[in-house]
């Protein structure tokens, strides 16, 4: 369960201040697949990064399972982050580490025992179908494979939540479909809450139950993708969904 309450964030830029988030509130139930969509600069990535406090809001509350992360000590916060996985647009693998060492990275950070690490890394790599690439360096992998390694890295920690920051934006349509399949597997098969930031409607449609539409730092509306007839009210949402498009 993730609750963002009246989250606001302002950046100081050379040309003045930029209101990245204005009074955004969302409640994401455990096990949900939730999307944040909007045009670039809408604040969706900033909002996502507020969930694990990579970005600290100026005001508001960030509650994960009822606990206000903003009130935790640094040490406590680092512990909580271990249970919130994250994947990125550019995969963010360590180039000088093998696939195995990339997946074991969060486990090593959390000081998991060596024999345990081996078991969990191989199990995670198995989930994404890359167990045979454990000894390779990322340079030998395709973009899609790199993102699968990143997914394995995230699930190796057995997180409750997986944050996805534009995970398919650097990939071709075919590879995108594969990655989205894995995200669904993580969500439905493993019961992990998935929060997906994307500007691609198709990706959100594929994975998410509910989508929050963001525009210039504000949450415009939440759209239930489960309805047979999606009827977004806002102009932006209608534009993003393509004329209120039925699925």
């Amino acid at each position: 369960m993730i609750e963002l309450k009246s989250v606001s964030k302002t950046y100081k830029t050379a040309g003045g201040t930029l209101r990245a988030l204005e009074d955004v509130s969302v409640e994401i139930g455990a096990g949900m697949a939730w999307g944040f969509i909007g045009l670039s600069g809408a604040g969706k990535s900033t909002l996502l990064r507020c969930v694990n406090l990579l970005e600290r809001p100026d005001s508001g509350e960030v509650l994960v399972d009822g606990e206000d992360l903003m009130r935790l000590s640094v040490k406590e916060l680092l512990r909580r982050r271990q249970k919130i996985g994250m994947i990125f647009q550019h995969f963010n693998l360590l180039h000088n580490c093998t696939v195995f060492d990339n997946v074991s990275f969060p486990l090593a950070v959390a000081r998991v025992k060596k024999d345990q690490i081996k078991v969990r890394v191989l199990r995670s790599l198995d989930v994404v179908g890359l167990a045979d690439r454990a000894r390779d360096y990322p340079a030998k992998l395709s973009g899609g494979q790199k993102q699968r390694v990143a997914i394995a890295r995230a699930i190796a920690m057995e997180p409750k939540i997986l944050l996805c920051d534009e995970p398919t934006s650097a990939l071709d349509p075919q590879t995108t479909a594969t990655i989205l399949e894995y995200l669904k597997k993580v969500n439905v098969g493993m019961g992990i809450t998935v929060v997906l930031v994307t500007h691609e409607m198709e990706a959100a449609r594929e994975v998410c139950r509910t989508v929050s539409v963001l525009e210039r730092g504000r949450l415009v509306e939440n759209v239930d993708m489960g309805c047979p007839h999606i009827s977004p009210r806002s102009v932006l949402a209608r534009h993003l969904f393509g004329n209120g498009g039925g699925i």
């Binding site: 990579l54 360590l94 000088n96 959390a110 944050l163």
Partner: peptide, 30 residues
């Protein structure tokens, strides 16, 4: 060193010391 790698390390709860040793020195060693 790729800022994304540092960001990833922060996201999994790495301390500053762990970021230095496990990310910065490893990625910047050459």
């Amino acid at each position: 060193v790729d800022r994304g790698a540092v960001e990833m390390a922060r996201s999994v709860g790495a301390s500053t010391f762990q970021i230095v040793v496990r990310v910065l020195y490893r990625e910047g060693r050459s």
